[in-house]
């Protein structure tokens, strides 16, 4: 099974058509069909169902898509590394589903102590199926409630909420504030993985008894802060990702009283599948 064949499979899944893929890749349709057959043999089960002329992924196909995408993306990464001559033999890969300032400071200590290990930080999965890579990293940083059967150790907690106010805002000088005092404000949120679609500070507003008015939603923290600085609205940020917002010009951070959520942040890994660098890191963390 070659990654070139997996790429063909991914294209057929995306385009729902053998002919389109054949045209694009300059292959014959029977050649594409043969590749799909080989992939299905490799996976051990049919991966597509035919709806007329369209090839749709079935449930097994959906699952295999993630695997194939992860393999292809990582093989490209490997080739890139070789092409630019980066082949640091000891690489630690961490997926940050949840940001943790504390962990980054720890990683700083770790890389100082182990100068031969390079740390790659992967962002969390996004909606794009192609970047769903649940297992090609050594560790994931996530909320404890999200860990499904993986081994984990707690490293941080999300327990204090702050509001980011542009300077000149009438609440900017306060020592602390209650969330419902902010109900008439316009908010800037990020997209988050929770069931509300927004980051978890949105639910804190609901719990405080109001539906926040939203002026902007963005998928980058940087975008969120920049827009707040430019007067787009106010924002909320938890204690585990304060490094950037606490240094913003023209913004002040006021802690919010009475927000009772506390979520444990853990670092998790698949038991029995830890690489050598992973083990070194775990030993370091457990000191």
């Amino acid at each position: 099974m070659d990654t070139r064949e997996m790429e063909v499979f991914l294209k057929v899944a995306d385009y729902h058509s053998l002919t389109k893929v054949a045209d694009e890749l300059g292959m014959t349709q029977p050649a594409v069909s043969a590749i799909i057959k080989r992939i299905e043999e490799f996976a051990g089960t049919p991966l597509f169902i035919r709806r007329g002329r369209r090839f749709m992924l079935n449930q097994a196909g959906d699952s295999f898509y993630c695997t194939a995408a992860a393999i292809c993306v990582n093989v490209n990464h490997i080739k890139e590394s070789f092409a630019v001559g980066y082949s640091n033999s000891r690489e630690l890969i961490i997926t940050m589903k949840i940001h943790s300032d504390w962990l980054l400071r720890k990683l700083d200590e770790f890389t100082a102590e182990h100068s031969d290990i390079g740390v790659t930080i992967r962002p969390s999965d996004d909606e794009n199926r192609r970047s769903r890579q649940p297992w090609i990293s050594d560790f994931s940083v996530m909320f404890k409630y999200d860990i499904q059967g993986m081994e984990n150790i707690p490293i941080d907690a999300q327990d204090t909420l702050y509001v980011i106010l542009p300077i000149g805002h009438h609440f900017a000088g306060r020592e602390y504030i209650y969330l419902d005092e902010l109900q008439e404000e316009n908010f800037v949120f990020s997209w988050g993985g929770s069931h509300t679609g927004y980051d978890s500070s949105y639910s804190a507003c609901l719990n405080a008894g109001f539906l926040p008015k939203i002026s902007l939603v963005t998928d980058s923290a940087k975008g969120k802060y920049a827009c707040i600085q430019n007067g787009c609205g106010i924002g909320l940020v938890y204690n585990n990702e304060m490094a950037v917002p606490s240094r913003l010009h023209d913004c002040s951070l006021v802690p919010i009283r009475n927000v009772l959520d506390r979520r444990t942040i853990c670092i998790a890994w698949q038991s029995g599948k830890l690489s050598e660098t992973g083990r070194v890191f775990l030993d370091f963390m457990q000191k």
Partner: peptide, 17 residues
């Protein structure tokens, strides 16, 4: 890592069906 990912992937496919 890749071989482990493939094994994991095959297992997921079995689970899916």
């Amino acid at each position: 890592r890749l071989v482990s990912a493939i094994d994991e992937g095959k297992r997921s496919v079995q689970e899916a069906i």
